[in-house]
């Protein structure tokens, strides 16, 4: 927020400082003025669309994360109640979905993300520049670097639990940790 205010202030200042002196009056072109006004309206509508698309982008990623979260909960629930063989499979499934949660949808999203970056689109342009802990990886929308790292660690621990066929208490511990992580990211 502070950064945005600073940018606005700097932008306004630079506008007044660099505003050119009024040119020698020329014959007014009413048609040109009208055209610019019309185009400004178009640009305004376009801005609405761009910003709406950005909100839609976030909504889609939220929906992906919600779906992944539900799949994780489902898998962990079945792992807790299933037999040994089933538990391993379900824990592997849970680990996979936690990994997909960490990466905002997994491999199938990567090409889309790359395509957006190819077109110059960064959802968190300013966060990229700050280099702070809250920064996001290229193209990520909701999952910050910190959250991604936590989720990746959890995915690995869940997969290790699958390899060791973890007990109900261990599965519950994974679920509690995952839910806390997901709650911080997904708007209910």
């Amino acid at each position: 927020m502070k950064l945005a205010l600073a940018c606005l202030t700097l932008g306004a200042l630079s506008f007044f400082v660099s505003r050119p002196e009024p040119a020698t009056p020329a014959a007014p072109s009413r048609a040109a003025d009208t055209a610019v006004e019309g185009l400004a309206k178009v640009y305004g509508s376009l801005a609405d669309s761009i910003l709406a698309n950005k909100r839609s982008e976030k909504a889609v990623i939220m929906a992906i994360l919600t779906a992944e979260r539900d799949l994780v909960i489902d898998a962990l629930g079945k792992a807790r109640t299933g037999d040994a063989d089933g538990r391993t499979d379900e824990l592997q499934r849970a680990a996979r979905h936690i990994g997909e949660f960490a990466t905002e949808g997994g491999s199938i999203i990567e090409p889309i993300r790359n395509r957006l970056l190819q077109g110059g689109h960064h959802h968190h342009h300013h966060a990229q520049d700050t280099g702070t802990e809250e920064a996001y990886d290229n193209g990520y929308v909701v999952v910050s670097k910190v959250h991604k790292r936590s989720a990746l660690d959890l995915a690995k621990r869940c997969a290790q639990l699958a390899a060791g066929n973890g007990d109900a208490a261990q599965i519950t511990a994974i679920q509690v940790e995952f839910m806390a992580l997901a709650k911080g990211l997904i708007d209910e």
């Binding site: 670097k145 990746l152 997969a159």
Partner: peptide, 13 residues
């Protein structure tokens, strides 16, 4: 991703 060999320790590709 789940094995820990996709990213660096800090989660970066």
């Amino acid at each position: 991703v789940v094995s820990g060999a996709a990213f660096s320790n800090d989660g970066a590709a």
